[in-house]
């Protein structure tokens, strides 16, 4: 039991930050996989699929993340599945990430000129080969800046699952506040830890955006 804010408290918060990082990482990996599928289907899929995905994206982008968290939290138990908060939290964050990252990545794919597809087509590459060897490597380089930028959003978004009781950094701050009654110290430290995680990524993101050369640096 921690009674006043001190080194022990900081340790407690850093453990919480570990969960924030883990949750962010999981969210990015899972959400990223679906985002890639969404981005590809939305540029190349058959029309009904494209429309369905676009509609889904519109709906999710018009709903607060917190509500999505609540919906997946209660929705899972509605269909009779009882999971630990980690799963509900991860699921909702992944859905949110899929939708935004999918949109960003679609933009990157569409930013590659049509002539690149055609040139690869004329060389008899299959659709998949065109994507794999010509389009995606170029889209990947453009996407780096925005993607790292969005990772900052992911880290910050994970704070929302504190509200369904998942003990990550923000929730750890709340708990610590209940023990120490020193909210100013606690939340300032929490903010500082978030900043320490996010700022380097923001910085890197801006750097990567500035460097839009498609070919590798050498």
């Amino acid at each position: 039991m921690i009674r006043s804010f001190g080194w022990e408290s900081v340790e407690f918060l850093i453990r919480g930050a570990g969960w924030t990082l883990l949750l962010s990482f999981m969210t990015f990996v899972i959400g990223g996989c679906f985002a890639l599928i969404f981005a590809l289907l939305r540029t190349l899929g058959p029309k009904p699929v494209r429309l369905a995905i676009a509609g889904f994206i519109q709906l999710v982008q018009a709903t607060p993340l917190l509500i999505i968290v609540f919906l997946s939290f209660y929705g899972l138990s509605f269909v009779g599945l009882h999971f630990p908060p980690m799963v509900g939290a991860g699921l909702s964050l992944a859905v949110y990430t899929t939708v935004f990252l999918g949109d960003i990545w679609r933009g990157c794919i569409e930013a590659i000129p049509r002539q690149q597809w055609e040139a690869a087509d004329a060389l008899a590459l299959t659709r998949m080969q065109q994507l794999r060897y010509v389009i995606l490597p170029q889209a990947f380089k453009i996407s780096l800046g925005p993607t790292v930028g969005f990772m900052v959003q992911i880290v910050k978004n994970t704070s929302v699952v504190a509200l369904i009781g998942f003990v990550e950094l923000t929730r750890a701050g709340q708990l610590l506040n209940n023990m120490t009654f020193q909210p100013f110290h606690v939340f300032l430290t929490v903010a500082a830890i978030y900043f320490a995680i996010c700022y380097p990524m923001s910085f890197l993101s801006e750097r990567l955006k500035g460097n839009r050369h498609v070919r590798p640096a050498h």
Binding site: Q115, Q116, E118, A119, A120, D121, A122, L123, A124, T126, Y133, V134, P137, Q138, K141, V214, R215, P216
Partner: peptide, 19 residues
């Protein structure tokens, strides 16, 4: 695809793969 293997095409705007 079989046809394109036999037919090469060169475009006005080169369209090299920049990466």
């Amino acid at each position: 695809r079989s046809l394109r293997k036999e037919v090469g095409m060169v475009f006005q705007s080169y369209n090299l793969f920049p990466h």
